[in-house]
Nucleic acid binder design. Structure first.
Length: 474
RNA sequence: GCUCCAGUGGUGUAGUCCGGCCAAUCAUGCGGGCCUUUCGAGCCCGCGACUCGGGUUCAAAUCCCGGCUGGAGCACCA
């Protein structure tokens, strides 16, 4: 599947540490992991933090946690802000070779010239003058603006490639290095330097980087380095949750989201909280592959993959939301022991029928219903949120003959207050059966006819247990 | 606008390089059936696609040209 595989495959995953990983990142992560495993190669995590304005200090650890959760083995981690001296060294070399120059033009002025294909006056500076300016730039002895530009082709058909910048001044303190440096490499410089120095054989990146690859080729050529195999995949369009780290961060600060794992988000930690298994994400991303055509991400397919994984272990429980009280006449007290799973032996749960239940459905007078696993009833009266019914029969066949519905129920006595929070922000409040208290936080269960949920929290503080679950999918 | 790229069922994907075995794969979805006291799982059946128009050829999803549609890039971000 990979072209030009030599003796060793070295690949990298290179996120910007501005937030935790989201579903969009998982494509690069999974594909890199797949190829590295397939060819027995190495995967390097490279944190690209050369823009101090776009660094969130917590993100370094969050990214590692996310990768670990996904089951990705990282052979080596490098942080670009640790490598500033390396970039300076190679930057200086390019200046010495006459392939880069210091440019003190104001950005607008340069752009105007560039768009006409005219070099600015700085381009003709001597190497000595450039080196002198370079030292001054590094030591913050310069007045006004200054960048280092790579000499490319000032008449290149793509204006952005014409003498593009490779270093710029940024005085915002860096979360890791503080104000130690004010000159930062741009990605079109640090990326090829690192890709070479770290021995990349293949690089997977989005097609939004196609032009960057072309720019970076100049660096490889100047140093006479062999270029890794750059592979560009199409855009993955993900509908639904917000993925922009800056917007999410803003939302967290404003209180719109309760954290980076708020179930409304598309971060990996949010998916984890909802009970989406990493294997399902892996499979979805493998299915999508690396083709260059744009792809619409299918939540449906992800959920189907997840269901495959969780179904066999998910214990079944009844859950009643928007509860109404149902009083039943003519039936004796009885105790049921129901299986936790229809096909596997995961133990049983006990439901005690004593005549008073909670149900979700809106029942109609005169109709027959079957209380699941119990018996058939006929509704006699509905008074607001209180329903009266009477026992009819045991046999399921009678229900079928009368085309009745099957409904879920929870004994009012011992019912556990439970709420389910959905990815769209909607909350279902209601009750579950008493044995639901035996499940642990983090377990994924199925509320029958409702969907799969992950148990997020068991709150015992107000003497009555209250359980919060996050909705995964149907 | 300019430069470049891509278009297979509702969605994702295989096949496209090296035309024929493709009246097109697999998954998901949807419809129906069996089973089942879940609208879950499982099993069975079915639905549904080569962007359009030309050309080359005995033969085109596959090659060529043009249109259409979608996307990317055009930063002192990554």
């Amino acid at each position: 599947m990979l072209k030009n595989v030599g003796d060793k495959v070295v690949m990298r995953f290179a996120p910007n540490p501005s937030g935790p990983l989201h579903i969009g990142h998982s494509r690069a992560v999974v594909l890199n992991d797949y190829f590295v495993k397939k060819y027995g190669g190495k995967l390097i995590l490279r944190l690209e933090d050369t823009d101090p304005k776009r660094v969130l200090p917590e993100a370094y650890d969050m990214i590692k946690e996310d990768l670990e959760w996904l089951g990705i083995k990282i052979d080596d981690t490098v942080i670009q802000s640790d490598r500033m001296e390396i970039y300076y060294k190679y930057g200086k070399k390019l200046i010495e070779m006459g392939n880069a120059y210091l440019c003190q033009c104001d950005p607008e002025g340069f752009r105007e010239l560039k768009n006409k294909g005219i070099p600015c006056k700085c381009r003709d500076n001597s190497i000595e003058a450039n080196l002198e300016l370079w030292e001054k730039m590094l030591n913050n002895q310069l007045e006004g603006t200054c960048v280092v530009r790579l000499k490319t082709d000032i008449k290149h058909k793509n204006p952005s490639i014409r003498d593009f910048p490779i270093f710029r001044i940024e005085t915002t303190p860096h979360p890791r290095t503080g104000d130690k440096y004010i000159v930062y490499p741009l990605m079109n410089f640090s990326v090829p330097i690192d890709d070479h120095l770290l021995g990349m054989s293949h690089v997977l990146r989005g097609k939004d980087h196609i032009v960057n690859t072309e720019k970076q080729k100049y660096i490889f050529d100047y140093f006479k380095w062999k270029m890794p195999e750059y592979i560009h995949y199409g855009i993955l369009k993900i509908e639904g949750p917000i993925l922009s780290t800056s917007k999410i961060h803003e939302g967290i600060l404003k209180g719109t989201y309760d954290g980076w794992d708020d179930p409304q988000l598309g971060t990996l930690r949010a998916l984890k909280r909802r009970g989406i298994r990493p294997e399902a994400i892996y499979k979805s991303m493998m299915d999508i592959g690396i083709k260059q055509a744009d792809v619409k991400f299918s939540w449906e397919n992800l959920y189907a993959a997840n269901k495959d994984i969780i179904d066999r272990d998910a214990k079944r429980f009844f859950f009643v939301w928007d509860p109404k009280v149902l009083n039943i006449e003519g039936a004796e007290l009885r105790t049921l022991n129901l299986r936790m799973h229809p096909d596997r032996d995961l133990g049983t749960r006990e439901l005690i029928f004593d005549g008073t239940l909670y149900v979700s459905d809106n029942l109609e007078v005169g109709k027959m219903y079957r209380l699941m696993e119990l018996f058939n009833i006929v509704v006699e009266d509905v008074d607001g949120d209180v329903i009266y019914a009477k026992y009819h029969s045991e046999d399921f066949k009678i229900l079928k003959e009368n085309r009745g519905k099957i409904i879920h129920w929870i004994p009012v006595k011992d019912a556990i207050k439970t709420k389910v929070i959905c990815p769209n922000g909607k909350k279902y409040e209601g009750f579950t059966e008493k044995d639901f208290k035996k499940v642990n936080v983090d377990e994924i269960v199925q509320f029958e006819r409702f969907g799969f949920v992950r148990v997020d929290n068991k709150d015992n503080s107000n003497k009555n247990l209250e359980i919060t679950c996050y909705f995964a999918h149907k």
